[in-house]
């Protein structure tokens, strides 16, 4: 049995079909990129796998995974009074939160070191740059030693900085820790470089497989065809010839 089997899942909000009978599987150790245009149901697919959205169909696990989740960094309230250390301490239930504790501090430093963000330990999350916040959120996701790391658009709106980009960081962590990775992306270049498997969705499953094999020019244009319900402005102009 595969690490994760998504079997025939559909999601509807009222009359609107967001995902229509999508099936694919993920093997242990895969780095899977879920791609598709805006509004294609990528995030909904991830939310369904995380159990955050109710779905029709089946989501089957080889064994119950421990999941580290990195939501889109834009979802965060920057005025929330919380330091990086406090955020990570909240996830260490065995350690005190209200007073200083050496082992807790060490555990926090250790995971921050893993993502190259030790310097940020004292900082309030509100002052972090997009890239810094993303690193901290990855550290937060790593704390329970997950067997599956799920990231929603890890690079959106982030300037490439330092020697190690977010993607090479994810790639390194996945190898070091033997994690399976599921990430939503719309950057095809990144998908070719880092993903061992790609799943293209545009309401329905368009393709799945090894990026170099399945991501043909024809398949990409099919995956990125604008769904009829998003017929407006710029997208219609750019993809007009794909409308059915």
């Amino acid at each position: 049995m595969a690490f994760l089997t998504v079997h025939d899942i559909s999601v509807r909000y009222g009359e609107r079909v967001i995902l229509d009978r999508v099936s694919f599987s993920v093997e242990r150790g895969d780095v899977v990129a879920i791609i598709g245009p805006n509004g294609s149901g990528k995030t909904t697919l991830v939310r369904a796998i995380l159990g955050l959205t109710s779905v029709a169909g089946e989501i089957l696990w080889e064994q119950k995974p421990s999941i580290g989740y990195v939501p889109q960094y834009v979802d965060f309230d920057r005025s929330f009074p919380l330091t990086v250390e406090e955020l990570l301490l909240l996830r260490l239930p065995g350690h005190p939160f209200w007073r200083h504790d050496d082992t807790a501090h060490e555990a926090v430093m250790h995971v921050l070191h893993d993502v190259g963000a030790e310097k940020l330990i004292e900082k309030p999350i509100g002052v972090l740059s997009g890239g810094e916040l993303q690193r901290v959120l990855i550290a937060n996701a790593l704390l329970p030693n997950p067997s599956l790391l799920v990231l929603d658009e890890p690079s959106s709106g982030i300037d490439i900085e330092g020697e190690e980009t977010i993607y090479s960081l994810i790639h390194r962590l996945a190898e070091e820790r033997g994690m399976t990775v599921l990430l939503v992306s719309h950057d095809l270049d990144i998908v070719f470089r880092y993903a061992s498997k790609v799943v293209c969705v545009n309401r329905k499953l368009i393709c799945q497989g090894v990026p170099s094999k399945v991501l043909t020019a024809q398949m990409i244009s099919k995956a990125y065809a604008t769904p009829a319900r998003y017929k407006h402005g710029k997208e219609t102009a750019a993809h007009g010839h794909h409308h059915s």
Binding site: R47, L50, G51, L52, I67, Y69, P71, D75, F76, F80, L82, L87, L90, R91, P93, F97, N140, P144, V150
Partner: peptide
């Protein structure tokens, strides 16, 4: 429930995945 409520306040989905 301090930690639980703080985590929910920070990000409900992250808390739910936990």
């Amino acid at each position: 429930f301090f930690r639980v409520w703080a985590k929910i306040a920070f990000h409900g989905d992250l808390a739910a995945v936990e």
